[in-house]
Design a protein around this nucleic acid. Sequence first.
DNA 1: GGATGTGAATGTCTTCACAGCT
DNA 2: AGCTGTGAAGACATTCACATCC
Lengths: 233, 233
Amino acid sequence: MSPQSFAAADFMEKAKISESTIRRMSHYYRFLEEMEEEGLETISSKKLAARGHLNPAKVRKDLSYFGSFGRRGKGYDIKLLKQAIHDILGVTRKWRLILIGAGNLGSALFYFGEFKKAGFEILAVLEKDPAKIGQEWHGIMICSVDDLEEVVRSFQIDIAVLAVPAKAAVEVAERLVRAGVKALLNFAPIKLPYQRGIIIRDVNLAMELEGLTYLLKNGQAPEFRADDNILSS
Amino acid sequence: MSPQSFAAADFMEKAKISESTIRRMSHYYRFLEEMEEEGLETISSKKLAARGHLNPAKVRKDLSYFGSFGRRGKGYDIKLLKQAIHDILGVTRKWRLILIGAGNLGSALFYFGEFKKAGFEILAVLEKDPAKIGQEWHGIMICSVDDLEEVVRSFQIDIAVLAVPAKAAVEVAERLVRAGVKALLNFAPIKLPYQRGIIIRDVNLAMELEGLTYLLKNGQAPEFRADDNILSS
DNA sequence: GGATGTGAATGTCTTCACAGCT
DNA sequence: AGCTGTGAAGACATTCACATCC
């Protein structure tokens, strides 16, 4: 921000935006991608809402937390709004990831194209099993988990993706945090103990299923339910 | 319920329990498992809450939606409470699953032990790629996705797990619903259009990461944030 | 005494409804 | 006229605080 610019940033209250809003922003982004591919140029909150079975007012309010992106009477410019959300979510910056665990899940995550597409780059893979250490995945050498601290530091890792067994997860998570990782996406089927100064998101596949079975069991009219969230533990 | 019993069920309002409560129930269940393994027999709402960085009152309220499981002055019997939650979540019944997509993600899901442990059994695997059709995974023959309707019916599938590319997801989902599947756990990176009478949960890995980066970018004091949810799209 | 279960208070999120811009 | 942006109302979720029971 240039010195002569209005010093807004200093007192611009960083209103605490809710988790759900951020989730929906991710959705909007993807809907806009779809619409752009269809050749559309502008979109109304009504249509954007319809795509996700949401209320138009909610769409507008979500967006309004971050600024005014639309034009009254016209709607939102798809390209512009897409870019804005991109920036808001922090996807503009390339994030440096490490993957711990080169088992089935690890390999699925590694080869899951969406990560790279969304600006997340897996720079290193660690594994405990000596049989896998030294193998190469797509040009990346699998290293020993013993070298965790060194790898994290030399690659300046931001985010770690944990795809290790539950038993190993707690210890690995602690080491990652000490080594300076700032966020963890945990796929181990265990809720990691909280630690100050780090952002953890647990993703537990079995729990997702349990959410479904509860609804099934209770014959819940599903219409608009069970969608708002995801792989979260 | 026997005829002479108090006819409670008829008007026992199935109070709509929130998604978050159900999620937490899944958590409680896992915490109780941990505690049982440690040899504990009873637990207070305070300690149970501490394990998940929650408020004790919330734990008690969550449980109270379903009944009174504790003993005043004493706490909750771990075994009993575990069983109760098990029933509540509908995990008692074995659920019959089909997996669509035998790629990296499909195979990771298939071999992910937590599913079976939690009472979910994958009875069939479908795939489009002819090279994979006919292979066997752990005694289960991979079939062609062309046979979807037949397989769903003959195995009486309850839930389908989608691990297919985004492009294929919508069509496959429609076929699954028509064939009688009641719930979908969707890993394809697309939000499926809503359909009446079916429960869909979208799990989008890239979106989970975007939730993290938003917090990282904004230097959010992470302490108690970013945990409540998961693999949700 | 110690911990549950729960009405009431508080806090947060969603939806309404309309002023205001194009 | 059409659609955004937003205060205010309403719905929902969380937390407090205490009566109740072991």
